[in-house]
Nucleic acid binder design. Structure first.
Lengths: 216, 216
DNA sequence: CGCCACCTCCCCCGCCCGGGGGAGAAACCC
DNA sequence: GGGTTTCTCCCCCGGGCGGGGGAGGTGGCG
């Protein structure tokens, strides 16, 4: 069974480009298109796609709200791959926070697009954003580090991530930094959102994969 | 304030050796000694040491039971560093399971002994066994890998660790391996005990630090 | 043949974790 | 001065996680 994909973007050109790239793959099938966020939910219900490739900035309903709507309303929701133009688009992190499974830059190479779709379809994306994996794979740890800079962690968040990556619990981090546990939780939540991680384990993986912490 | 250490070993020779090594450090102070496990709890109550260096195999009460007793009976327990002769002493894992903070080989170099004491005293040990860190630091990833072989993971446990180190939850691992979630939990528990990890985050860190998984 | 390690699944239970809110204080920048 | 960001702490709440048991079925090894 091929991977069925629904394309959502207000620019026909982008839709055509994605369609061309994806349809060239024998195991991927584009089953529908939408030009704005409001059309997504009905189409998802009708077509039951495996993956939705969704633009963030769109008329009527943006990608974040559309993601939220789909995840809230559908029982077995499709994987959602957020598509964006800008590398450090703040909306992307909102989308990941809303439940999206990965994100993809519009300027990405065709092979990366295909790879990202297969990744989220396999459920593997649950890891953390595919783009982060891709970046980490392309390291040049200068580039890898750029991933985290892109995530724009605050100084305090970096402190917390560093300790988290050494295996400390929230309470232990609080003791180490002489903070309240609630404060640590706040920083941890911010970290998870920025890194696109679901839990602290994924955040630690991101820290290693991006070169933020180095083994040994 | 120097780090106060209580030495527990049935062999006077070992105690003397540890004392010589540790007392040579300006920031470490040996405040007491015990020759068997039964004497540990009273001494801990009296001396309130920062660290207990404890042999596993001892008369009257072994290191595992002594560890349990101290952790159960004392409000702010000392850090417990398990000392052992054999590299793959099964009792060590029982001790870690019982709540010990790290372990140390008797044949370790003096510098490593000092390092281990400082590590557990700083609370850093909460990570996973200091020996694992030391080994990983000394990598030669052939040696690093040997750490995990020493942990003697079963084939299934390696499967689980590999997926855990990619950020999957227990339920997702179960789906990926077509297992029940309860089964996965069993394997995860075994992994944590063998690696001396407290939770899956520490297990993933151990996987990276030992070279079991490699970034990129 | 019996023993043992491994794999599989089940129960109960307490706790930490992470989500979703809100809120005050300080520093910064325009 | 007003707005923004950051850092700090608080509440409630559900769910995943990990500990502690038990148990059956398999295969290898002596």
């Amino acid at each position: 069974m091929p991977i069925s994909v629904l394309l959502v973007d207000d620019e026909p050109l982008v839709r055509a480009g994605l369609r061309a790239i994806l349809e060239a793959q024998p195991d991927i099938e584009v089953t529908g298109e939408a030009a704005d966020g409001a059309a997504v939910l009905p189409l998802v219900r009708e077509l039951r796609p495996d993956v939705v490739a969704m633009d963030v900035r769109m008329p009527l309903l943006d990608g974040i709200e559309a993601t939220r709507a789909v995840l809230r309303a559908v029982d077995t929701p499709p994987k959602i791959l957020v598509v964006t133009t800008f590398e450090n688009d703040a909306y992307v992190y909102d989308a990941l926070r809303a439940g999206a499974d990965g994100f993809l830059l519009k300027r990405a190479a065709p092979a990366d697009v295909v790879h990202a779709v297969r990744l989220v379809a396999s459920g593997e994306s649950l890891l953390f954003p595919a783009a982060l994996r891709t970046m980490a794979a392309a390291r040049g740890s200068a580039r890898a580090r750029a991933v985290l800079e892109r995530a724009a962690l605050t100084a305090r968040e970096e402190d917390v991530l560093r300790l988290m990556a050494r295996g400390l619990s929230n309470a232990e981090i609080a003791r180490a930094l002489t903070l309240g546990t609630e404060t640590v939780k706040t920083h941890v939540s911010a970290l998870l959102a920025k890194l696109g991680a679901r839990d602290r384990t994924q955040a630690v993986i991101a820290a290693y994969e991006s070169g933020f912490v180095v083994p040994g």
